[in-house]
């Protein structure tokens, strides 16, 4: 997998990490000097339930190749039941993304506790590898709302219909 400049494709992944567990786990991974992939752009949120569907949609829309959400284990949530919501939300969101043509594997939810630095490093490596194998996000090709040249793509079928046969 390589882009136009010939360098191998490196995915850009937006990671929403809960302040109390996953972010602390990421801290621990750093403290333990574990080596893991540098493709994550981490956003610290107070709870994984703070990750509104907007955040996920917007991340994909702005060109993220994958979205990673990390929260506390069920029962460990600092706000008692915040991650209950996240689990339902992500399950629905994955199916909707799939329905619109964005592979659901690009959205990943995982529970990582503050003590699981090694799990954080493993999850980062595994998800980065998965997204790298999938290639760039298909949404990068359809960002027509910013790029007028791509917007022609939408109307290509209509244009094809107007062109007389055999022309």
């Amino acid at each position: 997998m390589a882009d136009e400049s010939g360098s191998p494709f490196e995915p850009k992944i937006v990671a929403f990490c809960c302040n109390w567990c996953t972010y602390a786990g990421a801290d621990l991974a750093g403290g333990m000097r574990l080596k893991y992939e540098p493709n994550f752009v981490t956003v610290r949120v107070m709870c994984s339930a703070r990750v509104s569907p907007h955040f996920i949609i917007r991340a994909f829309q702005e060109g993220a190749d994958g979205v990673f959400i990390g929260g506390c284990h069920i029962g460990d949530c600092h706000y008692v039941k915040g991650n209950y919501i996240t689990a339902k939300r992500v399950a629905i969101m994955k199916r909707l993304l799939e329905f619109l043509g964005i592979p659901k594997e690009r959205l990943h939810l995982v529970w990582i506790a503050a003590s699981e630095g090694d799990k954080y490093a493993r999850e980062v490596d595994a998800f980065t590898e998965k997204v790298r194998a999938m290639g760039p996000s298909p949404l990068k090709q359809v960002r027509f709302w910013k790029d007028a040249t791509v917007s022609k793509k939408i109307y290509k079928s209509e244009a094809a219909a107007e062109t007389p046969a055999g022309a």
């Binding site: 569907p53 027509f144 709302w145």
Partner: peptide
């Protein structure tokens, strides 16, 4: 309505953002 919230979904600009405008409402 979140569809009127400019930082999330821009008002009055077409073509509409894909997929945020419709996916937000669908969700």
């Amino acid at each position: 309505c979140t569809l009127n919230d400019d930082p999330l979904v821009k008002r009055g600009e077409i073509p509409s953002e894909f997929p945020s405008f419709h996916l937000t409402r669908a969700f």
